[in-house]
Nucleic acid binder design. Structure first.
Lengths: 248, 248
DNA sequence: CGTTACGTTGAAAGGGTTCAATCCCTGTGG
DNA sequence: CCACAGGGATTGAACCCTTTCAACGTAACG
């Protein structure tokens, strides 16, 4: 092992996110081939854009560390937050049709990203059948995510939205091998409010209530879920069986 | 011309929806090849399901005539309407990842559908480069549609939602070569309400107001837009330039 | 011609927003 | 090292839009 790679040069093979990210269901050899087309760059600093609406599309991006906010603006300049992308998530699907990014992607914290040049990915998928299905999976996740977001906005009151958001984040962390009841979340309450279609004031009041009720505490950037059971009760979940992988 | 084909046997080549549907950007010969894999069946009667959540996925569907409602239910049994599919629209994207339909698709009126077996479509797309991009376009449209739905739900009040819905329907009809200011819409107000995250009562009141203000009349299944300008004003649109293709 | 589901209209209640003041954390510069 | 600035978070009170509940009207279907 003669080359010492810095942390942002971890290969797919050695990446802990394989189960969440792209290579799911690929064999060792194919992961190697995927690895060869991946372009890794120094981390993005907080507040920097990975891409912006109007940028031409060249590649999909897989998050290795950090958080990315995908957002846009309405005609009258109000911000819309479409989602938050965690390590293992794939970003850039919005540009697949028009070959131009439709939304803005901003790092909310120091964020490392793997770049997957789309042309090379396509060439590769001609030889790796599982890969094209994998691409469909990633896209499909994006579609379902949008639908779940709509569902949240239509049929849930403010309490339920906030509870569902925290619960989803918990599941996503758990799915990545972290503790589901205690994690760091570098997302402003303000951004969560916009994502949930609420005002920052409302979110603040609800978090205060959850804290007082000893359900969840979210102070600074640390989330503690004190009572998962009651959190699920707020959402209206039936919690017979513990498992259920909801992602983004 | 020795074989007389009934109306639901129109070939892609002779279909008026080419610009809206799949074959966009394919040459004459490729359309022919696509045509050969398309499976056409007798129309679905009102209330019949094209597919239901849990059905295994075999094919994408292109609407030739009629309307399809895509919907599901929340954990506590409330209906969620994800969208309405008009002639030229492609349905079934929700199943691309899991190979199983996630939602229910019901005909709201007598509806003709072209079935595009997915395996055959994939084989074909290996030889027709434009076709795979075309598939991406269709998927991408689905993603963007979901995001636009969310945007509607987050940042618009009831008046604006109803106005936007009618305006979008108008654009979609216009895009298909029909009059944009006067069209038939076989969608229950109740379903629109669910789609917009409102109650039927609210939608009813708003439509009454739009009628009284001589902006839009929607009685029975006929929509008349009396004043497109004021409709756009309700939405908050800037209407310098008339064009802008918003689809679904 | 009756039944059923959809649509309409009214009045009251409630959940979330709005507006405004204050607090608090972080980062910056003296 | 401390003071200050600025953006985000918090808290309170009034308001308003949408929902809810209930009653009635009406269109479609057998």
């Amino acid at each position: 092992m003669k080359e010492v790679k810095s942390s942002f040069h971890v290969s797919c093979k050695n990446c802990g996110l394989q189960k969440v990210c792209f290579p799911t269901g690929l064999n060792r050899e194919d992961v190697e081939r995927l690895d060869n087309i991946v372009d890794r760059r120094p981390p993005l600093k907080k507040g920097v854009h990975l891409f912006q609406a109007g940028d031409s599309f060249n590649a999909l991006f897989a998050i290795r560390a950090g958080v990315i906010k995908l957002y846009s603006f309405t005609d009258n300049g109000e911000e819309i937050v479409h989602g938050f992308y965690l390590p293992g998530d794939v970003l850039g699907i919005d540009a697949l049709g028009s070959r131009m990014h439709q939304y803005n992607a901003m790092a909310l914290d120091t964020t490392s990203v793997c770049t997957l040049p789309f042309e090379k990915l396509n060439e590769l998928s001609e030889n790796i059948p599982n890969l094209s299905q994998q691409i469909l999976n990633v896209i499909s996740k994006e579609v379902l995510d949008g639908r779940m977001h709509s569902e949240l906005l239509i049929r849930r009151n403010a309490d339920q939205r906030v509870a569902q958001f925290i619960y989803n984040m918990s599941e996503r962390h758990r799915h990545r091998g972290y503790a589901g009841s205690e994690f760091r979340l570098s997302i402003l309450h303000r951004d969560v409010a916009v994502y949930l279609g609420l005002t920052p004031e409302t979110v603040s009041r609800i978090l205060a209530k959850f804290h007082a009720d000893e359900i969840v505490t979210w102070k600074k950037k640390e989330v503690f879920i004190h009572n998962m059971h009651r959190l699920q009760d707020v959402i209206g979940m039936h919690h017979e069986c513990e498992k259920q992988t909801i992602d983004r």
